[in-house]
Design a protein around this nucleic acid. Structure first.
Length: 883
DNA sequence: GTAGTCACG
DNA sequence: ACGTACGTGACTACC
């Protein structure tokens, strides 16, 4: 901490800036009482940062005392045109003293004076006593106070970024002016926000010119007679009084009668208790946890026992009622990461070790195989133990899964972060303890590492009762116990099984693509007239739209858009366009699929083991990572061939695949209760053709041309996504008006769907969330947003999530049933992949007829809807051939 | 680390 | 008037 350093903060100004910086999400920042908190939040962020960067010895926050000041006495209109402070901000103002008290910071206001004058006065006093001073404000006027000892930090772009004004910086920015001349400049130019006029027709440039020549307002008027006749001179003469009045108003007082001394501003540090109470009141969870982490370092160490081969009897002699277990690894990919330690909570005792081989000892092995265990991420834990040849037989509470079901908007998969989000502050995130990215490193210090691991099992146990209670309150017990938890094990088995890739096949594709890419590359260089990096959108944009002068259709933030739909519009205008599209397509296949898969295929058995993220999506779908096996090409023939490389793991086996046909539309028919739509499915009609007949008023199916059907299909998709005329219009290339007609016709034909859409949005508004068939929740705070975009997005989400999410629920149930069925029927077939509405298996050829019968049976009976579910199956020697 | 692009349902 | 389709992950370039 610097010996004598004073931080002066312009309270009102910074609060305003903070408020408007977070104005777009003003409705996201509310506490449990509905109080808006965005300005407080922004102010806090700024303070936090400032204290770290400035390390002041003294701090004072100055506030305006009221509207009436000595300036309004001189000039009644002063600040007279200010808009009324928004009520969302007004309601926050009373809480600033609490925030400041938490930080242990003094605040001050003075009747008849503005915050500026308090700051000016204090700055001068401090400077005289040898302090370094930093003034923080959102108001550039204060830069007039800048000296060698006084720096003015003006907030920009939000509040945490500031622009530092020093005398040198001012000189540079305003063509050589000194800080005192800022006052003169303002007097001449005027200030619209403070509502005083300045001299007619004088702007910043003219003011700088005048001040460079005559130094000040006084200097100008002393010399005005010698100025040659001009409009400017005339204006100056006319507005003489105004100019002097404005200068008087603009000048910040440095002699205000403040009753506060520098000694009073001495900063003695944060008042933890008060600040914590304040954060709790405001629901500032991230700040709370930040506090906790820094405090934890000084907290009393947790008692635990380090397990060794010699003291395992400490485990075996116990008969614990409650067991929590955590298995640590050195990376996210639990199929490959090293097992780096574990921790265990047996009732009130904690055990920990770096040596995971200990888990194979009978004492621990049997505990895991027999006891009900609470964990964080059962799938990860299950796979990790399987790699040691161990079973995890009975999992009760999974903190990760339950957290996800309670609120999937907090989609972190970090134990510490989730625990904090649920109010348990006694743990840090992995990122804090281990670092991230290249800096990731497990602590070599046993105390640090063991304590973190022990905190993990402690957090799991501590949250169990409360989170179960919440599940119950949400009626989500079935969702957890009967769907997500059993599904975790099904997914674990699928991941462990892996799918074999034919690496020879991929390698031959690789060399073929390499050749073709090289050829096309040369042609493109010729057509462009130069060599450049085709993979760089920036360089490509320059070549197409500048060098070749093609008309550009759209710009991105950083340049021209070169996305496929844009380029497709340019086809025919230059042959290079086709070649680029071709190049892009091949490059994508090569880098992402051919080379991507080769990279992750196991050397020995040529299998790839994806990981399904079960706790990520907002709708309840799974996602697949490392590698992503849910986006293997299929739409274009060229890419589809990648699927030839996905083959059964054993000779004489085949790939078998079953997919739900139009599951989302069937779900919509079910939940909307629309009779017309339900009838179409019950009669087994072609749903898109049926929609075409309805929206285009056709009498017979014969009138449905392929083009009409295509358009109707787009409308059906649009409905599922939460339709808008603009979106539909853009998708199928019609006018907004035509799109609107289609939609109106659709809603007229399917009134139940229309009602469902309205009901979903209304429900989201009323309860703050929407639900799927199985009571999976998605919270939509933006449904109340003032911002049109945010609100519209939330409305579309309210319509889409129950549809997409219920479809996800259905296939999850089907997967659990499927695994049971495979076991019960004693089949060798294995379920390997899930692609949202499709399940992929490998099976001995002789089991194929059995699967053709049983898989659709299981899938379409997974959930009983008011419309039938339809399942289509296919099989072949590779995934490509299962078509 | 972010942006642009493109693969899937 | 606002300015959008819903849900994902991986790769490359570029700061």
């Amino acid at each position: 901490m610097a010996e004598k350093k004073l931080l002066l903060i312009d309270g009102n100004s910074v609060a305003f800036r903070a408020f408007y910086a977070l104005y777009n999400s003003v409705d996201r920042f509310t506490n449990h009482d509905g109080l808006h908190t965005n300005a407080l939040y922004g102010f806090n962020t700024m303070l936090d940062k400032l204290l770290k960067t400035e390390e002041p010895s003294n701090i004072l926050v100055a506030f305006d005392a009221g509207k009436k000041t000595f300036r309004t006495e001189k000039f009644a209109a002063y600040k007279g045109n200010r808009n009324k402070t928004p009520k969302e901000l007004t309601e926050q103002l009373p809480y600033f003293p609490d925030l400041l008290a938490g930080y242990g910071i003094k605040s001050y206001q003075l009747v008849n004076f503005e915050a500026d004058d308090i700051i000016g006065t204090m700055a001068k006093a401090a400077e005289n006593q040898g302090y370094q001073v930093t003034i923080v404000t959102g108001d550039r006027d204060l830069t007039q106070l800048t000296t060698d000892k006084v720096t003015v930090a003006v907030t920009k772009k939000g509040v945490s970024e500031v622009e530092y004004y020093t005398p040198e910086y001012i000189a540079e920015k305003f063509a050589g002016l000194n800080p005192r001349q800022i006052i003169d400049m303002k007097a001449l130019v005027g200030d619209s926000s403070d509502n005083y006029p300045g001299v007619t027709k004088v702007g910043e440039k003219t003011a700088i010119k005048l001040l460079t020549q005559y130094d000040s307002v006084e200097g100008i008027y002393q010399n005005i007679e010698q100025m040659k006749q001009s409009k400017l001179k005339e204006n100056l003469l006319n507005d003489r009084e105004v100019a002097f009045l404005c200068k008087n108003l603009a000048e910040i007082r440095q002699d205000a009668p403040v009753e506060i001394s520098l000694a009073d501003t001495k900063w003695t540090g944060v008042d933890d208790e008060k600040l914590r109470t304040f954060y709790q009141e405001m629901d500032f969870k991230s700040f709370l946890s930040k506090m906790q982490v820094s405090e934890e370092k000084t907290a009393a160490p947790l008692e635990y026992t380090v397990l060794t081969a010699a003291n395992l009897d400490l485990i075996s002699e116990r008969q614990p009622k409650e067991v929590a277990f955590y298995l640590e690894m050195d990376g996210p990919n639990y199929h490959k990461a090293e097992l780096t330690g574990f921790s265990l909570k047996l009732d009130d005792s904690y055990f920990v070790s770096r040596n995971c081989q200990l888990l194979k000892q009978p004492a621990l092995k049997e505990l895991l195989a027999k006891q009900a265990v609470d964990v964080f991420d059962v799938k990860r834990t299950y796979v990790g133990l399987k790699r040691l040849g161990l079973d995890l037989a009975r999992v009760d509470f999974d903190l990760l899964l339950v957290s996800y079901l309670l609120d999937n908007s907090e989609n972190s998969n970090d134990l510490g972060i989730l625990a904090q989000a649920h109010g348990y502050q006694e743990i840090a995130s992995d990122e804090v303890v281990y670092g991230k990215g290249a800096k990731f490193k497990l602590p070599s210090d046993d105390d640090v590492y063991f304590e973190h691991l022990v905190h993990k099992v402690k957090a799991i146990a501590a949250l169990k009762a409360d989170l179960y209670q919440q599940l119950k309150a949400n009626q989500q017990e079935q969702l957890y116990f009967e769907m997500e938890r059993p599904l975790s094990l099904v997914l674990a088995e699928m991941e462990l099984a892996g799918i074999k890739v034919d690496t020879d096949c991929l390698e031959s594709m690789q060399s073929k693509f390499k050749e073709r890419l090289a050829e096309i590359e040369q042609v493109i260089y010729q057509e462009a007239g130069k060599e450049f990096n085709i993979n760089s959108p920036k360089q490509l944009g320059t070549v197409l739209f500048e060098d070749l002068g093609l008309p550009y259709a759209k710009k991105t933030k950083t340049g021209y858009s070169t996305a496929a739909p844009i380029l497709e519009k340019l086809q025919g205008q230059a042959p290079i366009v086709d070649n680029i599209l071709q190049y892009r397509q091949l490059a994508k296949l090569q880098s992402t699929y051919v080379e991507g898969l080769l990279k992750v295929a196991d050397e020995a058995d040529h299998k790839v083991h994806t990981r399904y993220t079960q706790t990520l999506t907002a709708t309840g779908r799974l996602s697949s990572v490392d590698p992503n096996l849910q986006n293997i090409p299929v739409r274009l023939e060229e890419g589809r061939k990648i699927r030839q490389a996905f083959v059964p793991s054993k000779p004489g086996w085949e790939i078998f695949s079953s997919d739900y046909s139009q599951i989302e539309l069937r779900v919509l028919a079910h939940i909307s209760g629309d009779e017309n739509m339900q009838a179409a499915f019950k009669r087994g009609l072609d749903i898109h053709a049926n929609t075409a007949m309805n929206i285009f008023n056709l009498d017979s199916p014969d009138e449905v041309t392929p083009n009409l059907r295509r358009q109707a299909k787009a409308v059906n998709f649009g409905i599922v996504y939460g339709i808008s005329d603009f979106g539909l219009a853009r998708n199928i290339g019609i006018t907004n008006k035509e799109a609107k007609t289609f939609i109106d016709n659709y809603f007229a034909a399917f009134p139940g769907v229309h009602q469902y859409m309205q009901k979903s949005v209304a429900l989201a508004k009323k309860q703050g969330y929407v639900e799927t068939l199985f009571k999976r929740r998605r919270y939509l705070p933006d449904i109340h947003a003032k911002n049109f975009n945010l609100r519209s997005f939330a409305e579309r989400t309210a319509m889409n999530t129950p549809i997409q999410g219920s479809a996800a629920d259905i296939i999850k149930v089907a997967m659990i049933r499927m695994n049971e069925m495979l076991a019960k029927e004693n089949l060798a077939a294995k379920m390997l992949l899930q692609v949202h509405d499709e399940l992929i298996f490998e099976a001995p050829k002789e089991e194929i007829p059995i699967l053709e019968r049983l898989v659709p049976e299981v899938m379409d009976s997974a959930v009983k809807l008011t419309v039938p579910l339809k399942v289509e199956s296919k099989h072949g020697r590779s995934w490509f051939d299962a078509k």
